[in-house]
Simulated assay, not measured.
Amino acid sequence: MAEHSEQTCKQVGGAITRVFELLGKRWTGLIVAVLMQQSVYFSDLRRAIPGISERMLSDRLTELAAAGLLVREVDEGPPLRVSYRLTEAGRALGPALKELGLWAEMYLPEGGGRC
C-alpha cells in the first residue's frame, strides 16, 4: 500500500512545470525538432508539419521566440521571406529531444496516439 504523506507527495518542481507549459503545447516540440536540423522558412516549416495551421504555427513561433529559443530573421526581398533558427538555448534541447525519441521508439507503439 502506498504511503500518503507530505514527504512522499511533493509538488512538481517549478522548472519542470515551465518546461511542460512551453514544450507541452501541441505542435511546439515538432517545430523545435524541425528547426534542430537547420534554419527554415515559414512556408517550409508549415509543410514539414502536416496539419498545423498558419495561425497556430505563427502563435507557436512567437511563443518560442519570447522564450528565447528561436530567432526570427527577415530576408529582404523581393520576395520578402521570413526564416527561423534556434538560439543556443533552443539547440541545447537537442539531447533531450533525442532521448525522448529513443524512449518513444522503445515504449510507445507506432500510431498509438495519432488522430
Rank of each mutant, 00 (worst) to 15 (best):
M1H: 06
A2V: 10
E3R: 10
H4A: 05
S5R: 08
S5C: 07
E6G: 06
Q7T: 07
Q11G: 09
V12G: 05
G13H: 08
G13C: 11
A15V: 04
F20H: 09
E21A: 12
L22V: 03
L23C: 12
L23D: 03
G24S: 02
K25V: 08
R26V: 12
W27T: 02
G29K: 08
G29S: 13
G29Y: 11
L30M: 12
L30R: 09
V32K: 04
A33C: 11
V34F: 01
M36Q: 15
M36V: 05
Q37V: 06
Q38Y: 07
Y41A: 13
F42P: 01
F42M: 14
S43F: 02
D44R: 14
D44V: 09
L45A: 05
L45D: 01
R46F: 03
R46D: 02
I49L: 13
P50G: 12
G51D: 02
G51N: 03
I52N: 01
I52K: 00
S53H: 07
E54F: 06
E54L: 04
M56Y: 09
L57I: 00
L57Q: 00
L57E: 00
R60Q: 08
E63V: 06
L64N: 00
L64Y: 01
A66Y: 09
A67V: 01
G68L: 06
L69E: 00
L69Q: 01
L69P: 00
L70C: 11
V71S: 01
V71D: 02
R72H: 03
R72I: 13
E73M: 09
E76G: 04
E76V: 05
V82F: 00
S83F: 00
Y84R: 04
L86A: 02
L86C: 03
T87P: 02
G90F: 03
R91T: 00
A92E: 09
G94T: 05
G94K: 14
L97H: 06
L97M: 10
L97P: 00
K98C: 13
K98G: 13
L100N: 10
L100V: 04
L102C: 11
L102I: 03
W103T: 04
A104V: 07
P109K: 14
E110S: 15
G111H: 02
G112L: 10
G112V: 07
G112W: 08
G113V: 09
R114N: 14
C115P: 14
C115H: 10
